[in-house]
Design a binder for these strands. Sequence first.
RNA 1: UCCUUAGUAGCUCAGCUGGUUAGAGCACAUGACUGUUAAUCAUGGGGUCCCUGGUUCGAGCCCAGGCUGAGGAGCCA
Length: 476
Amino acid sequence: MKRTEINHILDQPTIGQEVNIKGWVRTFRNDQFISVNDGSTIRNLQIVISAENTQEEDRKRLHTGACISVNGIVQESLGKGQSVEVIGHSLEILGECDPNEFPIQMKKHSLEFLREKAHLRFRTSTFSAVFRIRHHLAFAVHQFFNERGFYYLHTPIITGSDAEGAGEMFQVTTLDLNNVPKNEEGHIDHGQDFFGKATNLTVSGQLEAELAALALGKVYTFGPTFRAENSNTSRHLAEFWMIEPEVAFNDIFDNMDLAEAFLKHCLKYVLDHAQEDLLFLQDREQQEDKTKPTEERQIMPLIDRLKFVVDNPFERITYTEAIDILLNSNHYKKKKFKYDVSWGIDLQSEHERYLVEKHFQKPVIITGYPAAIKAFYMRLNEDGKTVAAMDMLVPGIGEIIGGSQREERYDVLKEKCAQFNIPEEHVWWYLETRKFGTCPHAGFGLGFERMVMYATGMGNIRDVVPFPRTPLNAEF
RNA sequence: UCCUUAGUAGCUCAGCUGGUUAGAGCACAUGACUGUUAAUCAUGGGGUCCCUGGUUCGAGCCCAGGCUGAGGAGCCA
């Protein structure tokens, strides 16, 4: 008999229909009521069995986590907690689950504990909701760009580029680490390595995306990215997924419009397609908030927060205006910032948090940063001291997008390479695009996991990726 | 990497300024009940108190070093 998924039974029940259900037991109550989940929805289906049509020995094996197959009839429920249920007439245990060993119980576990059980945490309501939403967001990413005529570009994961400057890199080698070949100067001889040169895992697909944008017009990447930084925070991973659109003929203002439309589209998609998962996560967050001091609680419930972002224009200010706001704030006058504020500083987390969470209380895009604190490829403004960079900051997470209009002028870019001590022979191919039919263009990078955090309300980035890669942790 | 903080039963946690045999709830087992909603009730089993060393008549508790988690910072997406 063909399996019927639980979301179909709950959404379009046909009373009296004979169905087969397969799924995992959440609870078994009163020796009669099985609450079962098959991942098709966060909701569980109640299956009612009786002593007459099942073996006692099978009922004894209906522990939380066991996998079962049940044939039965769809009925209106006699109980109060659900409108329909299935009266089971035959029960098969597909996979036992020894409760003395299975660590997941039908109770609240700490996220830290579940992180150590990453292979089993999908079985919880929280993580199944998070990963369904992660899927919807990934789909929304492709939908957004496809509808606007972008091409999905696959940039390399292994790269020989050594001038990206986006962070520490993981080295890729097939050399025998116990017997590394050395050259005459005593350095590692990468000439004998697989690619004949030193290679590493990509820290960004941006430079390659620029090359494609200067022919295909509008492209985006969406793939894994690696940073070997020893970062131990709730918003950094050593392996994460990044989305990097790059558009020919766009300037920094087009870039901001694109970034804002993109984030709104993705969050709207989740609001439209994952309501019940969002509701569950919202309830969960509100339960958590009850245990926190008032000032740490969310101002708005999760779904209202997402709607607010979708429905309201983002704030757009320049770096110079941001500095002025900080300098004129009571917070600054009362000397509550740990780091001092003056034009030219790199904004600290506390400054960004103040602007986003206290002053504006909505997403903010900051542009026009001092050239000295931003990357070499960002376009120099007319004032000669700022660049057409942009950071999008969102409440609770901080920087979710970093982007810029790129420096398309060959001479200016060569000058920037010199200033940043980047040897031209390392980026010759990048420079050549400015030599051969250069054009204004712009793009940005968005950390996918940070968007998943924002959409789900989860506070730790390790809980929105199936198998987090962080310092000292590569289990599974 | 730095600062702060924590580690006690499978899970969540209590454990008195160092003193008999380390406790509770949940989970589990057995039994009762049989329209329950994380069912309920009764009984029972369950411990390398993170590791190593030290102080002490005596250490879960004090000291030193280490390991691991969390929060924050830096770096960033």
